[in-house]
Design a protein around this nucleic acid. Structure first.
Length: 944
RNA sequence: GCUCGAGUGGUGGAAUUGGUAGACACGUUGGACUUAAAAUCCAAUGGCCAUUAUGGCCGUGCGGGUUCAAGUCCCGCCUCGAGUACCA
């Protein structure tokens, strides 16, 4: 009887589905364990072999934990809102919901084939109204909250209103946007309700504001910083420009410090923590206010706030630079400079992010004609604008210290601005001196003779004394723009009365996505929801009604933007705990039982997107008392990408002639991707298949070397356009899902990127066949087990294996554990083992890796219940080391003798011990050891 | 530029806390079985030298260092990869 994986795998899929084997029960007596995968976006291309890598690893862990007696939650769902479905809808008119549904079906089929132990009863889809009801609900909670810096916690907005009524906003001003005017309680009461709402928006955790955004004209939408790679959009690679727009934003900056601090609470890869730390970009310094010198045009002195990490260099300031987009630029520019300034602003606005980046070295700027007064020297310093100052960082203005900052230095050189030196015995004729604390200050009045640390402290004290500055921590992290001008996303539960946003009552949720005729923006440039005809809010009936009915009394326009992709993914992990609950995001019982994710597996590419935003929302829900933990994922593993090995043919330029790789030499050729299925494992192209591939290749001249066409190879990301995609369905068809699972784990460490190579799968496939034969050692390959006592050697092999596998799984070293299995089965095969007491634990042991095969064997061993419920074998190693003082070890066939000595021994005792063992060694080895190496507290290794 | 990570056979990769480098697998070569192929099994497989087996020397990107002992620790380089970037 042969190993018929097809029969076995389909049999057990059906069995698991029918029995509901992997259903997680909330509130079980067992301890819980929550294993989570990052849910996929169901794209039209289906899965390639790279996608399941993380799912296989998490499935192994989930199954292992079940065997260890845990009640495991291992859910799966779909992040089903997104651009590709919408782009497809724009092109074909097909509703994104239909495309999404089709894609999900295909994903599900593929996932099922691989034998994952997901609890599909808990599936969530972000585009499902029953799901996004709760995304909208969280949005409303954010709108109804502000951030209390004193308590370091999100608080209900009503508390803030009470504060305003009592004492105005002076005490809570730090909790709002910069430049929020200070008002008294009296003023608050005198404000119109619209003015009050306007002020509150500056405090709310999600707010509507004019923000400088990354606008992608080609995609017709704004993008968040993490959606832009090298100045172009992540999706599509289109240029991005900066533009001011009224947008919803999330006040994630309020949580910046906690997002940093709480990284210490989680067991995440250091590289990922570093990425988040850099992204948040904390820098310590001071904010300093400079006042402008009144001019004919601007008779009042204007305050300009700057942020600096080097307040100690304040006596080195010889000019100021503002970003061209800075609010005050036009106000302070003098009449004679106005034309030039306006022109400069216009030019830099036109330059895309990409131009600006590719052109970093070009120094440009103009003088505004205005001067600022130095807070201490009272000297007049010129105010310039320059695009090396970014509007979005700090205050969009800098105090320029050319002797201490290279950019300021170059700017000063370029425009002939003086470069005063304030560093003792440092040469600044060639470049700025940016070292901190290696020298002391000179020409710096009260800071003379001080080094960085003391000078910084001193200058901040002085600035505070004259009320022109204070110590400040600045973050690179910016508030996250939350509006997208797209159709296929969550609608906002927001309607507008007199231009002010109002929340739809919570019990009216969800506000469902309306039908539209066209998925493109309207002709007037409104987002696609502007095409919806039934998209207005009736406050008296509390329903969505036709736009035509909009009046000033009870029917109001609804928000036309939709939420970004990360909205739906920021809380899905908690929703899995109670996915069908229609009265709450999840029940108190569910969250109390499941608590938080114990293991989260997913790609590192989400480091500064999803993984940051979801932490932010979790902290917010924590402040609200809805979730019990500040962090939602205790342990996180980033699986590495599986790459494709692309194949290339080389076409000589301006010809239709293709040269085999070896013939290219120094000829000018264009490499062209060719489908990897036309190429065999020795890089030889199937010329016939290549000719049939495309009409233009049919008649091509093909030059061979040694009768073969050899292709070029390159490791790249798997992608349809590179023709290097390997489909898991084909692998399952040929070798089975168990072999695919094993092989993906065997390829290398889970966290590492590695190229796929189908040829290597034969190793794990023949291992599975060997394992099968171990259970089918009867005549004619019939199933056969003996109930006799197994030989001691076999037990030793088994227990060695159990120990190693357990350690490997706990350390996520899945690749080495596959090797361990291979060694184990090889040893047992050569011992001709067919004993129940060996084979039974072995099948439990292997079941996380090859669940179908293990289940089949378990069943053949006479068990009716699924192997999923079997306990992982306990390790009984006692006979491995019979005398834990000395034991021979066979290594590579050579005999070795190891003595373990206690840590506490001194030199003499060690020598004694070695001498005592000497006889045994001599007897065993038959000769005298060459070297005796002794180190206290270590293993004594006698190399014979 | 800054931050992080990685360099080990023909290939993917092992190597616990510093303790026999190259486990396991692919590939290659030879052999068995077969009319033949597939499948399966056995053997060899880092380099150089030697041989009657026992052996010897060199080897973990490069150069130093610490140590009885270094792929592993320290210092200085080189190369590659990832992230980030006019961040004041």
């Amino acid at each position: 009887m042969n190993y018929n994986f097809k029969e076995i795998e389909s049999k057990w899929h059906a069995y698991w589905a029918e029995k509901g084997t992997f259903k997680a029960v909330t509130g079980s007596e067992k301890s819980k364990f929550y294993v989570l995968d990052m849910f996929p976006y169901p794209s039209g291309a289906g899965l390639h072999v790279g996608h399941p890598l993380g799912y296989i690893a998490s499935d192994i862990y989930a199954r292992y934990k079940r065997h260890k007696g845990f009640n495991v939650l291992h859910p799966m769902g779909y992040d089903s809102f997104g651009l590709p479905a919408e782009q497809y809808a724009i092109q074909t008119g097909q509703h994104p919901a239909i495309t999404t549904e089709t894609n999900i079906k295909r994903y599900r089929e593929q996932l099922d084939k691989l034998g994952f132990s997901f609890d599909w009863d808990r599936e969530v889809r972000t585009s499902n109204p029953q799901y996004y009801k709760w995304t909208q609900w969280i949005f409303i909670q954010l709108f109804n909250s502000w951030y209390d810096k004193d308590k370091d916690s999100a608080r209900p907005i009503q508390e803030l209103i009470d504060v305003f009524k009592e004492e105005g906003n002076s005490m809570v001003n730090a909790c709002s946007d910069e430049n929020t005017p200070i008002i008294s309680a009296k003023t608050w009461k005198e404000m119109s309700s619209q003015q009050q709402q306007q002020l509150l928006l500056k405090y709310r955790l999600t707010y509507l504001a004019d923000t400088e955004v990354n606008w992608c004209p080609k995609l017709g939408t704004v993008l968040a910083n993490d959606e832009i790679i090298n100045g172009v959009s992540e999706r599509g690679g289109f240029p991005v420009v900066r533009k001011k727009m009224t947008q919803w934003s999330m006040r994630i900056t309020a949580f910046a410090q906690r997002l940093l601090d709480d990284l210490s609470l989680v067991d995440w890869p250091q590289s990922l923590k570093d990425a988040q730390t850099n992204w948040i970009g904390r820098s310590v310094g001071a904010s300093v206010t400079f006042y402008t010198k009144p001019t004919a045009k601007q008779t009042q002195s204007l305050p300009i706030n700057v942020f600096t990490t080097r307040p100690d260099t304040i006596f080195g300031v010889s000019f100021m630079t503002l970003a061209p987009e800075h609010d005050l630029v036009l106000q302070l520019t003098t009449a004679d400079r106005e034309e030039e300034v306006r022109e400069y602003i216009a030019v830099s606005a036109k330059r895309s992010e990409r131009d600006r980046m590719s052109d970093v070295k070009r120094i440009s700027g103009v003088f505004t004609g205005a001067y600022a007064i130095h807070p201490f020297t009272k000297e007049c310093i010129p105010i310039w604008i320059g695009d090396y100052v970014l509007a979005g960082y700090g205050t969009g203005a800098v105090m320029s210290v050319p002797c201490g900052d290279q950019r300021d230095f170059e700017f000063a050189k370029n425009f002939d601005i003086p470069i005063p030196n304030i560093f003792n015995e440092v040469d600044i004729s060639e470049e700025a001196y940016a070292e901190k604390g290696k020298t002391t200050l000179v020409n710096s009045s009260f800071l003379d003779g001080l080094a960085f640390k003391q000078a910084t402290k001193k200058v901040i004290e002085e600035l505070e004394a004259i009320e022109q500055g204070k110590g400040k921590v600045n973050y690179r992290l910016r508030d996250a723009v939350f509006s997208r001008q797209r159709y296929w996303g969550e609608p906002f539960p927001v309607y507008y009365v007199n231009g002010m946003p109002n929340m739809v009552p919570e019990d009216c949720l969800p506000i469902e996505l309306p039908e539209v005729e066209k998925y493109l923006p309207t002709e007037t440039g409104e987002p696609p929801l502007g095409n919806a005809t039934v998209w207005a809010w009736n406050t008296s009936t509390e329903t969505v009604v036709d736009n035509k009915l909009i009046d000033e009394e009870t029917i109001f326009p609804l928000e036309l933007n939709t939420m970004p992709g990360w909205a739906g993914s920021s809380q899905y992990f908690n929703r899995y705990m109670d996915p069908k609950n229609n009265d709450a995001i999840f029940s108190k019982e569910a969250i109390a039982y499941w608590q938080q994710v114990d293991l989260y597996i997913g790609g590192v590419e989400h480091a500064t997107g999803h993984l940051l935003y979801s932490r932010f929302w979790q902290k917010f829900l924590f402040d609200l008392g809805i979730v019990p933990h500040k962090e939602y994922a205790v342990k996180l593993i980033n699986q590495g990408m599986i790459l494709g090995t692309s194949a290339f043919v080389y076409r000589e330029v301006n010809t239709n002639k293709f040269l085999s790789k070896g013939l290219v030499k120094d000829k000018e050729v264009i490499p062209i991707h060719v489908d990897v299925s036309f190429v065999n494992s020795s890089d030889e192209l199937n010329v016939e298949a290549f000719r049939n591939w495309r009409p233009e290749f049919a008649k091509a001249e093909i030059e061979l070397e040694n009768g073969k066409y050899i292709v070029g190879r390159e490791v790249e990301k798997m992608s349809k356009s590179k023709y290097n995609v390997v489909n898991p369905d084909e692998i399952c068809e040929e070798y089975g899902a168990d072999a695919l699972r094993l092989y993906e784990m065997f390829l290398g460490p889970i966290e590492q990127a590695k190229p796929w190579n189908t040829a290597g799968i034969s190793g794990v496939y023949s291992f599975l066949k060997k394992l099968w034969r171990l259970f089918h050692s009867g005549s004619d390959g019939q199933f056969y087990v003996s109930d006799d006592e197994p030989p001691k050697e076999a037990l030793k092999t088994l227990h060695k294996t159990i120990k190693k596998i357990e350690e490997d799984i706990e350390h996520f070293s899945f690749n080495t554990s596959v090797s361990t299995f291979m060694i184990c089965v090889n040893e047992l095969s050569s011992l001709k083992i067919c004993h129940r007491s060996i084979l039974e634990p072995l099948s439990i042991l292997i079941s996380p890796y090859a669940p179908h095969l293990a289940e089949e064997l378990w069943n053949k061993l006479g068990h009716q219940e699924s192997i999923a419920y079997a306990s992982f074998p306990e390790f009984i190693a006692s006979h491995l080391v019979e005398d834990n003082k000395q034991y021979p070890v066979s290594f590579n066939g050579k005999m070795r003798f190891v003595i373990e000595l206690p840590l506490s021994m001194n030199k003499e005792q060690i020598e004694d011990a070695v001498m005592k063992h000497q006889k045994t060694i001599d007897q065993l080895q038959g000769r005298v050891p060459k070297r005796v190496i002794v180190v206290p507290g270590k293993i004594v290794n006698i190399v014979g």
